[in-house]
Design a protein around this nucleic acid. Structure first.
Lengths: 129, 129
DNA sequence: CGGTATCCCAAATGATACTG
DNA sequence: CAGTATCATTTGGGATACCG
């Protein structure tokens, strides 16, 4: 049993992150923040997510109080999703993380290549014949 | 193949997030940001992470240029981990996310209970006999 | 259209044992 | 102490088919 002793906050942060921190949740929140209101299949197309995962993700987000689901009992049915107030407040830190990600992708790629080159060249020190 | 069309940034954000966005990476970064320098087993104890996952996580973080690994070839060996400059800059948005998490855990729990109660009571509208 | 149910595969992770 | 290797299990997630 993991205890996360010594970093008591880690335990709780971990808790929330394992709920709303998965990639699909993050991407759904980002999309809804950008477009305001989206229907089920709009989200599906936008994110390239499978129907199953979108359904599960949205249900979780609704349950956690981050998104609002509005069902219009027309034919064919129409369901619209928006962010709740809490969902919008969640978008702020997520957006910060996204910005960092975009701003550092290149540096990370560079670091990776440097690391891989060093590791790869370790076996033979000089150039291959 | 998922395309993430319509949200071009999502694609790249997704990329970085799937690298450094997993829960163990986040928790390692938080711990190192708090304590400055930690040895392998200190991290292991602090986070309640398995040896294997810590090893993998640290290797990835080092590769991505977020943590520094210093090996002291003593007996017994001693390895110290710190955040690189980029690692520290990553800590800022992560910290924001962590703060949000801590500040909203209760509200999320409340939303969950409300949701679950509503769902559970849906079958029979009045109280059980 | 907006799901839910089922099946099945791939990736993540923990437990354990072994090594330098 | 600081790992690596192997195994077994759980979980994530796509494909498909069906329902209201």
């Amino acid at each position: 049993m993991p205890d996360t002793a010594g970093c008591p906050d880690c335990e709780r942060i971990n808790e929330v992150l394992s709920r709303v921190g998965d990639r699909w949740s993050v991407l759904v929140v980002i999309s809804l923040a950008r477009y305001g209101t989206l229907r089920f299949n709009e989200l599906k197309r936008n994110l390239g997510i499978s129907q199953r995962m979108l359904s599960l993700t949205l249900k979780e987000l609704e349950r956690d109080g981050l998104v609002n689901r509005t069902y219009h009992p027309t034919i064919p049915p129409k369901v619209e999703y928006t962010l709740t107030e809490m969902g919008q407040s969640f978008h702020a830190p997520v957006s910060a993380l996204g910005s960092w990600a975009l701003g550092n992708l290149n540096r990370i790629d560079a670091a990776r290549q440097a690391y891989d080159n060093k590791a790869g060249g370790e076996i033979g020190t000089d150039a291959p014949a």
